[in-house]
Amino acid sequence: MTVLRGLRSGLDFLYLAAGVLAALCLIAILGLIVVQMLARWTGEVFPGAPDYAGYAMAAASFLAFANALNRGSHIRVSILLNAVPEGFRRVLEIWCFGIGTAVMWYFTYYAYRFVYWSWKFNDVSQGQDRTPLWIPQSVMLFGGAVLAVALTDHLIHVIFRGDHRITRDLDDQSHAE
């Protein structure tokens, strides 16, 4: 049981830590935008600022996917889920998490190949930043993998415990609309 409990807290830490890193990326985006503006006003150049902001954007998104899932932020159509009886809902949830898990592990596998080939081809950014692309792309790979793990985690939970572990905060979710 200790092993399981350790695994549990380890995973929860992983989701949270990735989410916090994502939040730091948002701050980085803000910083990059401000620095670029300052540079423009003072006649200086900050080559590659838009490219770096783009990488931070991808990192912010992918690192936060799992955290957003756990907090019920990702949008889904829940009419059917809410309408069906308890037992059938469990089957439906298994189907949803099953599809999600499959999609994200598929994504993660190909993201690994993608990063590997970027590294192998020595793919560099075509912008003025000249960043070797495998570096920012690795963050996408990591974030995708964390989401895949989180979906698997919920799937196992639905199968063995009957319910997933998403705490839904409608208010939080609706701020995108």
Partner: peptide, 10 residues
């Protein structure tokens, strides 16, 4: 080289 100030514009 021409003494101009480069500004990055997409």
């Amino acid at each position: 080289l021409t003494g101009m100030l480069p500004v990055t514009i997409e």
